[in-house]
Simulated scan of single mutants.
Amino acid sequence: MNHWLVKSEPFKYSWEKFNKDGRTFWDGVRNYQARNNLREMKEGDLVLFYHSNEGKNVVGVAKVAKEAYQDPTTSDPNWVVVDLVPVETLKNPVTLAQIKAEESLKDISLVKQGRLSVMPLRAEEFDKILEMGS
């Protein structure tokens, strides 16, 4: 199993809306590295949901429900989406400041490549963020 982090601005698509919807396709990715990460996602992979810009915190855990397919919001075949379903809300959101302050997380893409919207995490990084949020 792989582990990921996806970012969304809460005013565009919030964790609360995602939970209400129960399932969504992750669209709007127009960065090649993020797109390639979407293509690598496998059904059952776990995904941290991060609120960017407002909040700047990890708020929940999702799961990949369907692997990459053509983004229905564009006719350009270069862009893909995956389906995600919510799994759980973190008891305590984990802030970007907390992540930056944690030595074991200093090399994750969220810190190193702040603008990347879909990024891989090592299992121990994923688990550390979950621990920080419990």
Results as ranks from 00 to 15, higher is better:
1 M>A: 07
4 W>H: 10
4 W>L: 10
5 L>W: 12
6 V>N: 12
9 E>M: 04
9 E>F: 02
11 F>D: 12
12 K>Y: 10
12 K>V: 14
16 E>D: 15
18 F>M: 14
18 F>P: 07
19 N>M: 15
20 K>G: 00
20 K>A: 11
21 D>A: 11
22 G>H: 13
23 R>C: 10
24 T>P: 01
26 W>G: 05
28 G>P: 09
28 G>M: 08
28 G>Q: 06
31 N>W: 13
32 Y>W: 15
32 Y>D: 11
33 Q>K: 15
34 A>G: 14
34 A>T: 14
35 R>K: 14
35 R>H: 04
35 R>D: 12
35 R>S: 14
36 N>D: 13
36 N>P: 10
37 N>Y: 10
40 E>L: 15
40 E>C: 12
40 E>A: 15
41 M>R: 08
42 K>T: 09
43 E>Y: 05
44 G>W: 04
44 G>F: 05
47 V>L: 05
47 V>Y: 08
50 Y>N: 01
52 S>D: 03
54 E>K: 11
56 K>N: 11
56 K>L: 05
56 K>V: 00
57 N>L: 03
57 N>Q: 14
60 G>M: 09
60 G>S: 07
63 K>Q: 15
63 K>S: 11
64 V>D: 06
65 A>H: 08
66 K>F: 03
66 K>Q: 12
67 E>P: 04
68 A>L: 05
69 Y>I: 02
69 Y>G: 03
69 Y>K: 07
70 Q>Y: 00
70 Q>T: 05
70 Q>P: 08
71 D>K: 10
74 T>W: 01
77 P>L: 00
78 N>K: 15
79 W>F: 04
79 W>T: 00
80 V>G: 00
81 V>N: 01
82 V>Y: 00
82 V>K: 00
83 D>E: 15
84 L>M: 01
86 P>L: 02
87 V>D: 02
88 E>A: 11
89 T>C: 01
97 A>M: 03
98 Q>K: 13
99 I>T: 06
101 A>P: 01
101 A>H: 02
101 A>W: 02
102 E>P: 00
103 E>A: 08
104 S>M: 08
105 L>T: 08
107 D>M: 04
109 S>I: 05
112 K>H: 02
112 K>V: 09
113 Q>H: 13
114 G>R: 10
116 L>K: 05
116 L>W: 01
117 S>H: 02
125 E>L: 05
125 E>K: 08
129 I>V: 13
129 I>W: 07
132 M>C: 01
134 S>H: 09
